[in-house]
Design a binder for these strands. Structure first.
Lengths: 220, 220
DNA sequence: GACAACTTGTCACCGGGTGTCAATGCCGGA
DNA sequence: TCCGGCATTGACACCCGGTGACAAGTTGTC
């Protein structure tokens, strides 16, 4: 029962490889599933037996990475200081990106070629955010707070990562992550009224400042 | 030249209405474009002359709302305190959601029925986040910092909104937004070392704590 | 009323995605 | 070694989202 499994693995790798190369050369939208299958030496029908959709072949390691991250969360989470636990897990996870720079850069290039792909990427990100939220809840953070904190932390990190990708993955991610922390502290400091001193007219009560954004697309 | 425009508007509304009702009744994936067109009394080809894709008919007011938000950002942005400006813009924008509760709730229900729809929603959200980032940059915030702050603020708000939707849009959004601010201040306060006192072993220097998360899907 | 401009429906086609079925190849047991 | 069972595959037909082309019908204008 070994030859079977090996063949499956080989075929899967061939499909991923073919898709990757073609996407890189012609962009996601410029490649048909038929073509991917042809290059990999199988039929279109077989492609869909390995991947539920064309989108999925573009993110072949997502599942595995998500699980890895969830594991790190579980391992590092600290009931005494949930956010610190999340930060530790993230710090442990970031190495992934630092090492896979070149590959990531290539992938990033073709993810940007298709709106569909970008949208799926965002959906996958949402799963990571949800993992953080779930971890926070598991350790006692009330649901709403967990959602907000998860969004906040993840949003900031996604921003950083986006910038890092956009700049060609230059610079040490760990250092950048530390900078992000500094920025958060900056923020914390500037929340203290007397640290601002701007000419703004508004009420100068204890602290309170802005409100809360949103956005989103839905309609009636 | 008035009858033409009016007819177009009528048809557009009919398509939106038909799509909305059908999505609500059968879920996004359970509805075909043919069926939407049939209910609206036109041909499938005509549907695609009004909306570039089936996805777009699910978010018919996105463009308009995004522009509205961008306008608010431009109006409220304060070079002396960029974040406060963003907060003001968001506060002004939130009324939208508060008032359209029932409609939003219905839409939320069917957005959740389809992964494609959720992904598109995330993509639209990204445009709002980018609007914030751009506004921050326009007022002098360096690019990376702007990206991170945009992601942070937007992420937190999205978390809040998600929770609000999930809970059936109960509660006053403005109050919730204020709560979000409190939470941020909480965070700021707890960044101050002596406020924690947990059993954690780590170095106790000036302040520094965690690192920085990320996640995301890409692969090799 | 006639002609131009615009809008619409029909038809044919492409690509993603799925069900069905028959053929092939792998595996285990006798 | 041969045989039967099972998994994998290819071929085919089909559905749905989306587009180009063209002909027919409307609307607006002179």
């Amino acid at each position: 029962m070994a030859l079977r499994a090996e063949k499956k693995h080989t075929t899967r790798q061939a499909l991923i490889r073919a898709a990757h190369d073609l996407f890189l050369a012609q962009g996601y939208d410029g490649v048909t599933v038929d073509r991917i299958a042809e290059v990999a030496g199988v039929s279109k029908r077989t492609f869909f037996r390995y991947f539920p959709s064309k989108l999925d072949v573009a993110f072949p390691h997502h599942e595995e990475r998500l699980r890895h991250f969830e594991g790190l969360l579980a391992r590092h989470l600290d009931p005494e200081d949930p956010l610190r636990g999340v930060a530790r897990a993230v710090a442990a996870y970031v190495g992934f990106y630092q090492e896979a720079r070149e590959d990531l850069l290539a992938e990033y290039a073709y993810v940007a070629t298709s709106r569909e792909l970008r949208a799926r990427d965002a959906d996958l990100d949402w799963q990571f955010e949800t993992a953080i939220t779930a971890a926070l809840e598991r350790v006692g953070t009330p649901p709403r707070r967990a959602r907000i904190l998860g969004g906040l932390v993840f949003g900031a990190c996604r921003g950083l990562l986006f910038d890092w990708f956009s700049g060609g993955c230059r610079g040490d991610l760990h250092r950048l992550a530390r900078e992000l922390l500094d920025l958060l502290e900056d923020l914390a400091r500037s929340r203290d009224p007397q640290a601002v001193g701007g000419p703004a007219a508004g009420a100068r009560g204890p602290a309170r400042r802005g409100r809360a954004p949103r956005t989103g697309g839905r309609d009636a």
